[in-house]
Amino acid sequence: MALTLTILGSNSALPTSDRYPTAQILRVSERFFLIDCGEGTQMQLRRNKVNFSKINHIFLSHLHGDHVFGLIGLISTFGLLGRRKALTIHAHEDLKCLLQPHLDYFCADLPYQIHFNDLRYDEPAIIYEDKKVTVESFPLSHRVPTCGFLFKEKAKEPNIRKEAILKYQLTVPEIVAIKDGHPFIGEDGNVVPEENLITPAPAPLSYAFCSDTRYSRRIIPVIQGVSLLYHEATFLHELKDLAKRTGHTTAKQAAVIARDADVGQLILGHFSSRYKDVSLFENEAKEVFLNTALVSDNTVIEL
Rank of each mutant, 00 (worst) to 15 (best):
Ser211His: 05
Gln265Arg: 14
Ile219Ser: 03
Tyr207His: 13
Glu238Ser: 12
Phe209Thr: 03
Gly225Glu: 06
Asp212Gly: 06
Ala255Ile: 10
Gly225Asp: 10
Tyr215Phe: 14
Lys252Gly: 00
Ile257Trp: 04
Tyr215Asp: 08
Val263Cys: 05
Gly225Lys: 08
Ser227Cys: 10
Ala243Thr: 11
Ser211Ala: 15
Arg259Lys: 13
Ile219Val: 14
Phe235Thr: 05
Leu205Gln: 11
Ile220Leu: 05
Ala258Lys: 04
Ile219Gly: 06
Tyr207Cys: 10
Asp262Leu: 13
Leu236Glu: 02
Cys210Glu: 01
Gly225Ala: 05
Asp212Ala: 12
Arg214Gly: 07
Thr234Gln: 10
His231Tyr: 03
Leu228Lys: 02
His231Met: 11
Leu205Arg: 14
Val222Leu: 07
His237Ala: 04
Ala261Ile: 12
Gly225Val: 10
Thr213Ile: 02
Thr250Pro: 01
Ser227Phe: 03
Glu232Leu: 12
Ser211Trp: 02
Thr234Gly: 09
Val256Trp: 07
Thr213Val: 07
Ile267Asp: 02
Ser272Gly: 13
Val263Thr: 04
Val256Gly: 04
Lys240Phe: 06
Arg245Asn: 15
Ala258Cys: 08
Glu232Cys: 10
Gly247Thr: 09
Glu238Cys: 01
Lys252Thr: 08
Ala208Asn: 11
Gly269Leu: 02
Arg218Met: 08
Ala255Pro: 07
Glu232Val: 14
Thr249Cys: 15
Arg218Cys: 03
Ser272Glu: 10
Tyr215Ser: 12
Arg214Leu: 06
Arg245Gly: 12
Phe235Arg: 04
Gly264Ser: 09
Thr246Ile: 15
Ile220Phe: 00
Gln265Met: 15
Arg259Ser: 14
Gly264Ile: 12
His231Ser: 15
Cys210His: 05
Ile267Val: 15
Ile257Gly: 02
Phe271Ile: 02
Ile257Met: 10
Glu238Gln: 11
Ala254Gly: 11
Ser211Gln: 08
Thr213Glu: 02
Tyr207Arg: 04
Leu268Trp: 06
Phe271Val: 07
Gly225Thr: 13
Ala258Arg: 11
Gln265Thr: 15
Ala255Thr: 05
Ala254His: 01
Arg259Trp: 08
Ser206Trp: 07
Thr246His: 02
Ala233Thr: 13
Leu228Asn: 09
Ser227Gly: 15
Asp241Tyr: 10
Ala254Ser: 14
Gly269Phe: 01
Arg259Leu: 08
Ala254Trp: 00
Val226Trp: 05
Gln224Phe: 07
Phe209Leu: 12
His237Tyr: 11
Thr213Lys: 00
Leu205Gly: 07
Asp241Phe: 10
Gln265His: 15
His231Gln: 11
Leu239Pro: 03
Ser272Cys: 13
Glu238Gly: 15
His270Tyr: 02
Phe235Pro: 00
Ile267Trp: 01
Asp260Thr: 02
Ala261Trp: 08
Lys252Tyr: 13
Leu229Met: 08
Ala208Ser: 09
Leu205Cys: 04
Leu242Asn: 12
Leu266His: 01
Leu236Phe: 01
Glu232Ile: 15
Ala254Lys: 01
Arg218Phe: 10
Thr234Asn: 07
Arg218His: 14
Gln265Trp: 05
Leu239Asn: 13
Asp241Thr: 15
Glu232Thr: 15
Ala255Trp: 01
Lys240Asp: 12
Asp262Lys: 15
Ala261Phe: 01
Leu236Asp: 00
Gly269Lys: 04
Asp262Ala: 14
Lys252His: 10
Gln265Gly: 06
Ile223Val: 09
Ala233Gly: 13
Gly225Trp: 07
